[in-house]
Design a protein around this nucleic acid. Structure first.
Lengths: 204, 204
DNA sequence: TGACTAATTGACCGATTGGTCAAAAATAAA
DNA sequence: TTTATTTTTGACCAATCGGTCAATTAGTCA
């Protein structure tokens, strides 16, 4: 039993990717339906039939971004030999967002957090779930690293995880205007140093 | 010689403050001229005569915010007994931006950085100058703190300054959706701990 | 070949956007 | 009182906004 009716002439995920990149570059409010139609190569009716209204399309693009980002983070962390190498690899994967060549687009999740979260419960909830799971994954990895003495043990893993996520958010925000790739690399270097140094236990 | 012509019926700075709070709450694109007129209590012609167009008004509001923010930071730092107490006091002044009661508006400078910096050279330049002077002030303070051994000396003051500013930006961004005042306080506590602990010099 | 179903097309909608401008009003100076 | 200068007012503008929908098209199935 094949599909009934006229077949869709585009791939949902491809169109979603194109929409994502427009929203990513210009933000939600500054993106018009016509901008989206141009980028996605669709007519108005097709867009509304396939994705609903502008807000719904944004949510779907955001969901896709978050899912891909989480999977990439998992891959970075789990494919490395040691926990700390995994974290380091994840940091490095972020430099692409800092690049000047990359149009200073920053992280789409942080952008959405800043522009929409305070007034948009659905966006806020998606981001809350995403950052929560990210911090959970990070905390687990840090705990392993602490067991291996790769990371300081005098601060709880959950605390370090939240700290790191907050710091990375700031780096992504600052990358939208002030920080180039090199500056971000230096910042991550500093972060790694602070995570690895440790106050010595008082020697009795 | 008094002023010639019909006198203005409102205070420039008061109106600018009202505009600032509208832009702060909704962002640039989501704020309409009518929103501004309502909040400022002006008619269209008066606004355009006094402030130019929407973009120009935004720049003036941003400049005012940055100037007041910088002066407040200076006050926090310089009115305390020790450098580290000054930095601590500055951190505490940020918690107001994290408060749930405060409508999750975050930091207007970080908001503007995220929404506009990549496409708006004038906004980008204002923010660059602001963050640069902020980091300079912070670096000087940290250097003093290092001399007094209040802060770790194994990382350069300029490096710590950029690190702190980046971290604070992230905290402001995350405060727009996920972090309440308590979480921000805990994060600052962690930051202070990391700044004060220090890798021991290798004992020979 | 029709019948049925779903996607495409683009004209069309009212509302809102940022912005302009001529007329009226309010002051100081002459 | 008149003149010069500036601000206020609100009607007005073209352009764009997000969104709808009837007609057309392209498939599958009987």
């Amino acid at each position: 039993m094949g599909q009934v009716g006229r077949p869709r002439e585009f791939e949902i995920d491809e169109a979603l990717d194109k929409a994502l990149h427009v929203f990513w570059k210009h933000g939600y409010e500054a993106t018009s339906i016509n901008d989206l139609l141009d980028a996605m190569g669709l007519q108005k009716g097709s867009l509304y039939k396939a994705f609903g209204d502008k807000h719904s399309l944004f949510l779907q693009a955001l969901e896709r971004y978050l899912e891909m980002g989480y999977q990439q983070t998992q891959a970075c962390i789990q494919l490395q030999a040691t926990p700390i190498a995994g974290v380091q690899r994840w940091f490095e994967s972020l430099f692409g967002y800092c690049d000047q060549q990359n149009q200073k687009r920053g992280c789409f999740a942080v952008n959405a957090l800043s522009e929409l979260a305070p007034h948009d419960p659905e966006v806020a909830e998606l981001l809350r779930l995403h950052f929560d799971r990210l911090e959970l994954l990070l905390a687990k990895t840090i705990k392993k690293a602490q067991d291996k003495q790769e990371i300081r043990q005098d601060v709880a893993a959950e605390t370090l995880s939240l700290f790191i996520n907050t710091f990375v958010s700031g780096m992504m925000a600052q990358a939208k205007g002030r920080l180039d790739r090199e500056a971000c690399q230096h910042l991550v270097q500093t972060l790694m140093f602070l995570l690895q140094s440790q106050t010595p236990l008082p020697s009795v």
